[in-house]
């Protein structure tokens, strides 16, 4: 009987873990988990560190992806525009540096330095945060609405805007529209968008 139970348990585990990489991630309105990740300055950063924040612009990003490069200035501009309004930018790199050496912690440090990042650039070494959020590509934005001291809800998931190659030809600024709506306590006009991008470089399991 015990043997049957064991076999059943093994079969159950096999079924549960098959194709595991496809985690559903967050939907709009879900509570976003806080994290504690190492910043390029060596200090640990969490959402809860920002006592006065009204929300957050969390961006899964990296050094190497051409889309991340195309959006780099726009990400820097988002923090300049919204940090003072209570919506700081927090960037997180989840790429496995053994697959993408240009995304190592040292390379992250030099990117943050050369571009004068005035926002965190965190390393998600275990990739647990990227998996919990359901981040798939870079840059992938999650706008969070802080509803109480220790709870934030996902208000927008997707792209920064609708034109990757040309910032001057953008017609829909999804992230700005979402944050503006939250600041004005209105409903976010577009809550989910998709964009072409680089896959997050997951560890080989």
């Amino acid at each position: 009987m015990n043997a049957v139970k064991t076999i059943f348990a093994i079969a159950l585990i096999a079924v549960m873990t098959a194709g595991r990489p496809v985690t559903p991630g967050y939907e709009i309105g879900d509570t976003a988990t806080d994290f504690k990740l190492k910043n390029v300055d060596g200090k640990m950063v969490s959402l809860s560190d920002y006592k006065d924040a009204k929300g957050y612009i969390v961006i899964f990003d990296c050094n190497t992806c051409p889309y991340s490069k195309a959006y780099n200035e726009r990400i820097i501009a988002l923090n300049k525009k919204y940090a003072s309004k209570g919506f700081p930018v927090i960037t997180i790199n989840a790429n496995d540096p053994s697959i993408s050496p240009g995304d190592s912690f040292d390379e992250m440090k030099s990117r943050a330095k050369s571009k004068n990042y005035d926002f965190p650039y965190l390393m998600d070494e275990t990739q647990e945060v990227a998996r919990a959020y359901g981040a798939t590509n870079t840059p992938h934005v999650f706008v969070l609405d802080k509803v109480s001291d220790n709870e934030s809800k996902v208000a927008y998931i997707g792209a920064i805007d609708d034109n990757s190659r040309n910032a001057n030809a953008v017609s829909k600024r999804y992230v700005e529209d979402a944050v503006d709506a939250l600041i004005q306590e209105k409903s976010v006009p577009t809550t989910r968008t998709k964009a072409i991008g680089c896959t997050i470089k997951w560890k080989n399991s």
Binding site: T136, N137, H140, G158, A159, D162, N163, S164, R165, A169, T193, K194, A195, I196, G197, C198, T199, I200
Partner: peptide, 18 residues
């Protein structure tokens, strides 16, 4: 030019990553 207008036409589950 606007991926959001066509990605779902390929597959609703596609995030857009390649």
């Amino acid at each position: 030019t606007d991926p959001n207008s066509w990605i779902d036409k390929i597959d609703k589950s596609w995030s857009g990553a390649i």
